[in-house]
Design a protein around this nucleic acid. Structure first.
Lengths: 230, 230
DNA sequence: TTGACTTTTATGTGTATACATAACAGCATA
DNA sequence: TATGCTGTTATGTATACACATAAAAGTCAA
């Protein structure tokens, strides 16, 4: 029998059994061949459905052992980190930015540790991002100049360093972390908030083949919220 | 020619071209048939490689139009939100929790709005989670009792509401958000921090077929950091 | 010129088949 | 007993083929 979208319906059927508790966490589920027979489709189709469930962390698969419902399901949220300008404009606000500092300098230890670049002079850029004229986010960025040709002449009054890098410099991997912190004097001044006010911090380092390209710290004022579906 | 892992190598080859700038953002790349010919593999294999790239947001695909490198790539971070006990124990600390409040009550407007359950009495549970005896996170949870049979008799002195729900109550979807806030008097007392100290807040609502199961707010003290790969 | 129809094209998906590979079980040999 | 060599099994992956489908491009008649 040839159906369309059948891997999706198979996946839905499997999910239903898991969600209903018919297959409980930790339990091994029937093999691909058996399921293919039951659903009246090919093993390929079942395989795809199961593969997708495994990608989403719903089931765990191992050769020979079989497939089982993940015993302790970890909730996963996929966050999308858009370009700042888009983030602001999508909310219907006007975006502006201003580069408040641009220097070539030896980075402090905390930055060199993250980037694993010792004793190199890095480009240090601080940018204030504004939404409808009000301070929205403060960005403190360090850039490995050797890996980003052209950055010295980039027109940062027109395009933000954020956007320029995303468009001009490819990266292969990186890491990101989120935490809460309180504003120090400098940040408080820039963001026009009280010293000690809570900030949402995103720290991000991107690399190309294990060589750090840029590392940055973004400080969002209270009111910023990051949302995602589970 | 039959190779193993070839969809991975094809994907790697495609990624390389994108990262190297040979194919720049917004550009349409050759069709599946053409690529299959070039790589000496079947269209199926190219399809799978491209499908995975599309899932990761690297390329955009549309029937008939073709495949193009995502013009404005949005960085995506997949966060894993583990069970609190695991989170603490994985860091080598001893986990304990204590339920500080358990009542059946009409929820305040902010909660009913999130859960879209009006005028229902909900179970309200507040739990303090401890790491090596020190306050780690404060959880404020509202539960739709009708959808969670057995919760009234659950042994919350042994197992945390968090863990009990994950294991006993299946859910189909939900949403989650992250933001920074400052501690009010009550939270400051529980978490043994100063009033006004920054907190990392995770708000989460889970649903089963569009019916809210539980909605909770988790407040982490400063020092908590959520990390992920890009 | 406009609007309805047809063709073309690139991706989307399903089937049958084959071989690859990891891990386990059981047997046999030193 | 320990160790190495078989199968065996379930998933992992590649291939050739066929049909589905959305969207663009082309065609033609009112």
């Amino acid at each position: 029998m040839r159906q369309t979208q059948s891997h999706q319906s198979v996946q839905a059927a499997l999910l239903k059994r898991i969600h209903s508790g018919e297959w409980s966490p930790g339990m091994f589920i029937p093999g691909e061949v058996e399921l293919a027979l039951e659903f009246g489709c090919s093993r390929t189709t079942v395989n795809r459905a199961l593969r997708q469930l495994a990608e989403n962390g719903i089931v765990e698969r191992k050769r020979k052992r079989g497939t089982r419902v993940t015993p302790m399901p970890v909730a996963r949220a996929t966050l999308e980190i858009p370009i700042i300008r888009k983030e602001v404009e999508d909310r219907g606000s006007e975006y502006r930015h201003s580069v408040v500092l641009k220097e070539i300098k030896k980075a402090p230890a905390s930055v060199t540790a993250r980037m694993q670049l010792k004793d190199k002079k890095l480009l240090h850029i601080q940018t204030l991002h504004l939404s409808d004229g009000a301070p929205y986010m403060f960005e403190d960025r360090w850039v490995n100049v050797e890996e980003t040709p052209g950055i010295e002449n980039a027109p940062f009054d027109e395009i933000s360093p954020n956007e320029w890098l995303v468009q001009e410099v490819p990266y292969s991997d990186g890491d990101i972390s989120f935490y809460a912190s309180s504003a120090n004097k400098e940040l408080a001044d820039f963001l026009e908030i009280k010293e000690g006010a809570p900030l949402f911090i995103i720290e991000r380092t991107t690399r190309m083949n294990d060589v750090a390209i840029t590392s940055l710290k973004m400080a969002y004022t209270e009111g910023f919220k990051m949302t995602s579906k589970l």
